[in-house]
Design a protein around this nucleic acid. Structure first.
Lengths: 156, 156
DNA sequence: ACGGAGTGGTTGATGTGTCATGTAAATCGT
DNA sequence: ACGATTTACATGACACATCAACCACTCCGT
């Protein structure tokens, strides 16, 4: 890993790309989050957890597995699941195979909530990102994201 | 604005682009934030505020102006500035022209801190995003960001 | 010039994220 | 098989963001 002595400053194009990315992120994410909250009463993390669970077999997943897939800390997941549990969106079950384990299960209410939220959320994602770009740009964005993700996930 | 009835689901490519974007954001931002905290003891918002002030004439700016440029709420800025003030990075001064106003001024310490933090931060941004992409991809990213930002900023 | 509306900023309550730590069960070494 | 370590998760304290009041000053109409 190079020391800072050898690190050149960002050139103007790189500077603009970085600032653009930051601003895109700020605008897109706050709007999508606001829409989600207004339309469905969910926060962005709420939606992600529900979505992850709804795609899991049996609508259940180990807490740690959930955290790992979503790149959250276990602690964060534990706290968040507790709150979602209090709202009736998920419940905890003991894990048969591992006495320490906790399985997080989507409740019927949780399933209902995310199924109702999903189409509105998709509409919001379209309004605030997808439909603003040409198909070419979408493909490029995917390619850029893949490149970066691949590099970063290959690192500690 | 179209109702959800008319909103088609994301096609596979759009789906991958959206998920890719989300994951890129998660990976890049957490790593850059962690580097910044470890290298310089600053949070991401800390850095942004210091950076904004260091570029302002007289190293000072009205609280509301600062908030507006950064798309923060005034409340958030007020709270955050209070904490940064307690750490000696900025100070408040009364505004001569408007008795209600507050001017936020970069302290000598604040200037020292950001000047020391900047090169490491640039290195981190390179490691975690810029240097992972080809010059073409950088240009495309900038273009995509500009497109989206332009659309979104033209809206309430 | 005075009374009310609007503006700039602060504050407190609440929900959420992070870090350090705690606890209990599983696993490993011998 | 027994103690030490590691793993899975929970918890408490704190930092931070958001929202809804709130206060003080400015601006405007009459």
């Amino acid at each position: 890993m190079a020391g800072i002595e050898e690190t050149p400053w960002l050139d103007p194009g790189q500077q603009r790309a970085w600032r653009g990315y930051r601003r895109l992120r700020l605008l897109v994410d706050t709007r999508v989050a606001r829409d989600l909250a207004v339309d469905s009463g969910l926060s962005d993390p709420d939606y992600d957890v529900l979505s992850e669970l709804s795609e899991a077999s049996g609508h259940r997943r180990r807490l740690g597995e959930l955290a790992e897939r979503m790149l959250w800390s276990q602690s964060r997941m534990s706290h968040h699941v507790k709150r979602m549990q209090q709202r009736g969106l998920v419940r905890r079950e003991e894990c048969a195979r591992d006495g320490r384990g906790a399985e997080i299960v989507l409740t019927a209410e949780g399933l209902r909530v995310i199924e109702e939220a999903a189409p509105r959320h998709v509409a919001s994602v379209r309004r605030n990102l997808i439909d603003l770009l040409t198909p070419d740009q979408i493909a490029l964005l995917e390619q850029i994201a893949d490149t970066v993700v691949e590099h970063l996930e290959a690192r500690p």
